[in-house]
Design a protein around this nucleic acid. Sequence first.
DNA 1: AGGTATTCACATGAAACTATTCTCTGAGTTAGG
DNA 2: TAACTCAGAGAATAGTTTCATGTGAATACCTGT
Length: 400
Amino acid sequence: MADKLTTFFEDFLEKNSLFTNKKALQSSFIPDEIRHRDEQINAVANILAPGLRLERPSNLFLYGKTGTGKTLVVRHTAKNMMEVAEERGIPLKIFYLNCKLKKIADTEYRLIAELARYLGKAIPPTGLPTDEVYNIFFQALDKEQQVVIFILDEIDQLVKKAGDEIIYNLTRINSELKHAQVGIIGISNDLIFSNNLDPRVKSSLSEEELVFPPYNALQLQNILQRRCNLAFERGLLEEGVIAKCAAYAAREHGDARRALELIRVAGELAERAGDQKVTITHLDAAEEKIERDRFLDVVEHQPKQFQAVLYAIIATSKDRASYSTGEIYNNYKELCIKIGLRPLTQRRVSDIIAELDMLGLINAKVISKGRFGRTKEIMLSLPTSLIPKITNLLREGLSL
DNA sequence: AGGTATTCACATGAAACTATTCTCTGAGTTAGG
DNA sequence: TAACTCAGAGAATAGTTTCATGTGAATACCTGT
């Protein structure tokens, strides 16, 4: 066995990888040249530029759907700007922070703590009053003459969890700072997010606004082509693969990230199969694999109670298409007793159902059946082919 | 027949509670001078 | 007396529970014809 393994690894190394630079297809990759976003880059650069003269740059709010290059444009511009600042010894600091990251920046405390950490202050993960952390942050910020720009990515997630006061406080902080100046760049995927914002917050955050339209198929194709040139040997991609990939992603609201992922996975599949070329078949397989993996991954990483509820739904969904909250809850309770799990209240289960819906594992719609009450109409939205696998996963998770 | 009042079966919201993780503080203890 | 230890108070957070209130439309119940 050991011999076999060794040969396997040796073979693996021997085998020429189809990729010359896989990094170029990963979403964290920042290419030197960004296509089809000149306008936005210029706009961002113009807005941020005053920072180099130690004037406060306007706050900026960017929005556009996922994979339209918002983060990329901002990071790219920020990088260039930092280079200039460093060269000239300008006290400019730019920090990028993704608010979606759990346990990092999804509450007021954590956001401020994280920002303070950027400024070189060690803040414990808990235990301190929020005011205290805020003070530390403020002191660190105002310690010297400087311009600081905070880039808050996926800011909608933060507001959803922690309210918009934080943003308001952050935008107002300038009036209290004596030496430093703060500019904020907010990035959001949610187009209607800014409408739900407190008007005061909205006006202070979006002194400038920038919309990122989705890429169209042609632009996607162009982007893909570039990245593939970096990532693969020339001629490795079968004719039409890029076009199809672009078309697929354009259908999904022009998401370049998905397109890149798709082609990367296609490449990996081809490589694993020992094929010399990436073909359309691989692409189709990749599309399916991504979808499958997403489901399995989501299911596997749910907390126990969620899994129990999901299992109850799957076990229930045998003879009819949809079920009501009450029915599911009863079955869930039975299941809990069977496996020795403390059953949650119906209130909570109702929320869990709503969350499973958000995750796209089930489909839950509130309907009114008149005299017979109001409930959610719950049905599974898993691909049928995956159900046995998921059932097994859940059995394992729940030790059934 | 047409109108309105009820009623069901939950949905949805808000507040309060629990458990866990973590810091800070100050009393008590220890050991060295 | 300085250094150390350790329990207790206080915070933040996630996950719930408790209590309260809301709700869409099928039906029951009237009403006047």
